[in-house]
Amino acid sequence: MSTLMHVPKNGHGAQKKSSFPTWTNWIDDLFDTEHVPTVFSSNYNSGMSMPKVNIKETKDDYFVEMAVPGMKKSDFVIDLDNDILSVSAEHKEESETKEENYTRKEFGYSSFKRTFSLPESINESKINATYNDGILMIQLPKREEAKQKPIRSIKIS
């Protein structure tokens, strides 16, 4: 499960690795599913790698951008269950070629599911999603009380 804030896995992003591998580093690297798919990955052999996600925050909204080229709007399912946003897609493809001496039939299937824990400051009734040029964009508006107020000068009486 992803959150709207990135925290390095096992502190690896915050620490410098020693030039001599330790047993723990070797084990961590062996099972590092972020870079090498293994049988322990949740999306092993699913036919589609997990799409990359950009998350940005403005004063009024959060935006989740997901790179998923080759899909159609109808391939996506976006659900909100309490404070968990789930984005999944499923794509099926079939083609058949018949000629005089042969028949060739190919098919493919791909799917993924990503989930995000949303902060309580999201106005759930105004969440909006668009899909254009291979990018799924989800706008997560903040509640009025969560928006940053402009600086105000206070006069001394």
Rank of each mutant, 00 (worst) to 15 (best):
G13S: 13
S46M: 08
N25M: 10
E99T: 13
F76N: 03
M71Q: 12
K147D: 01
K56W: 01
I84W: 03
D75F: 10
S42Q: 10
N82D: 06
M48S: 08
W26F: 14
K17V: 00
G13N: 11
K9C: 07
E100H: 02
L118I: 02
P150W: 02
N43Q: 05
L80Q: 05
N54W: 03
N101R: 06
K73W: 15
F76E: 00
E100P: 01
A89D: 03
V39T: 14
N10D: 15
Q148Y: 01
H12F: 08
N132Q: 14
E144H: 06
G134L: 06
F40D: 14
P119R: 02
P69I: 03
H91T: 06
A129K: 14
F112P: 04
D75K: 01
M5V: 13
V39L: 09
I55K: 01
M50C: 07
H35V: 13
V87T: 04
I138W: 12
T130M: 11
Q15R: 12
S125W: 04
G11Y: 11
S86D: 11
G11P: 04
H12S: 12
V53K: 07
T3Y: 03
K56V: 11
A14P: 00
S117P: 00
D79S: 12
K52R: 09
G11H: 09
T3K: 03
H6P: 08
